[in-house]
């Protein structure tokens, strides 16, 4: 398909990029382009001005706050995945990055862009089916359509589109902070508030003003994350989105009780899913498979399924129990 005509501007500074987008109503930032160019060509998104931010000096990784890391928004996935401080302090995040997409795409895709990537829901991507995310009020084709891969957590009657990111799953478990600069100045958004559930407005995915640019992602110091892991279950062995993925960082004390736990799930939610209920069910309790199973049950108590995706609940629960059992053993 041929892309509609666009106007192009290559920003030389953050201020210039923010001013260019915020002063033009139909504009968008262009980072790695792995989602944006794809969706432009599919006519799913239709900005008339692209503001290229690839030249901005935001590719750094630097230490912050006694052991945390600040990741520049234009740092590429492949570089972040292999950065020694990421591998050492947050191995589960490194694994999540390397299990996403392909090496070519990881070389292109930026961390800021990854936070803004769009769902792979085929009704969203086809550019014509009713879709409340693409065209508010038009309906949701996935509710009664082919929805084997659609979300079971965080859904609404308006949208059940799955959030596709792997690394965002790690970042919600780590309580990362999204830093932005926009027309109204700087902002810091706790990552769980950055990803909005569809509710009645599926087209609004982030609390970002038009022209507000992600400039960095802060990952706090977290000793338990040094043994974190990310496991991804999918239909083929590589280069595929998750059916279910699990990020875990757990510390069990000498008595065999769960002392610390960060647990998050990919592939099952409309947003990268922090498993708060499972965490609360396990903290202070014995680290046993029975308790892991009870915690997984709690997490999925409100799951909303369809005949095609109800297998995901069993699948995800087993994935949680298996992962935590392997970490414990």
């Amino acid at each position: 398909m041929t892309m509609r005509p666009i106007t192009f501007f290559r920003a030389g500074s953050i201020d210039e990029a923010v001013a260019a987008v915020s002063s033009h109503p139909d504009s968008a930032f262009l980072a790695g382009g792995t989602t944006e160019i794809d969706l432009l060509r599919l006519n799913v998104v239709q900005p008339t001005l692209l503001v290229d931010v690839n030249d901005l000096p935001l590719t750094y990784l630097e230490d912050v706050d006694d052991g945390g890391v600040r990741i520049g928004a234009m740092a590429r996935m492949s570089d972040v995945a292999r950065a020694p401080r990421i591998v050492e302090r947050y191995p589960g995040m490194s694994q999540a990055l390397l299990l996403g997409a392909s090496e070519q795409l990881r070389n292109m895709a930026s961390m800021g862009g990854n936070m803004c990537q769009r769902t792979r829901c085929s009704y969203f991507r086809d550019g014509q089916s009713p879709c409340n995310k693409r065209e508010p009020g038009s309906g949701c084709s996935a509710l009664t359509g082919i929805n084997r891969g659609h979300a079971v957590l965080g859904t609404s009657e308006q949208c059940i589109a799955t959030h596709p990111s792997d690394v965002a799953v790690a970042l919600v478990a780590l309580d990362a902070m999204i830093r932005t600069i926009g027309p109204d100045g700087t902002n810091a958004i706790p990552i769980e508030r950055f990803f909005l559930r569809p509710a009645d407005t599926p087209s609004i995915e982030h609390p970002l003003a038009h022209g507000e640019l992600i400039v960095a992602i802060d990952v706090p110091a977290l000793p338990v994350a040094r043994t974190s892991r990310y496991v991804k279950h999918r239909d083929r062995a590589s280069y595929e989105f998750a059916l279910v993925s699990v990020f875990s960082a757990m510390r069990v004390d000498d008595a065999g009780n769960v002392a610390e736990l960060r647990l998050a799930l990919g592939g099952v939610g409309t947003v990268p899913w922090r498993a708060h209920r499972a965490e609360e069910a396990l903290i202070g309790r014995p680290a046993t498979p029975e308790n892991f199973a009870a915690a997984a049950d709690a997490e999925f108590a409100d799951a909303r399924t369809t005949p095609m995706n109800e297998f995901m609940v069993t699948f995800a629960k087993r994935a949680i129990v298996r992962e935590l059992s392997e970490v414990t053993s």
Partner: peptide, 19 residues
């Protein structure tokens, strides 16, 4: 930090949509 609107790109900074 507030963004100075005067840093908006001049029309000459925009390219296209024509070749």
């Amino acid at each position: 930090m507030a963004i100075n609107q005067s840093t908006a790109p001049a029309e000459t900074g925009l390219r296209g949509p024509r070749g």
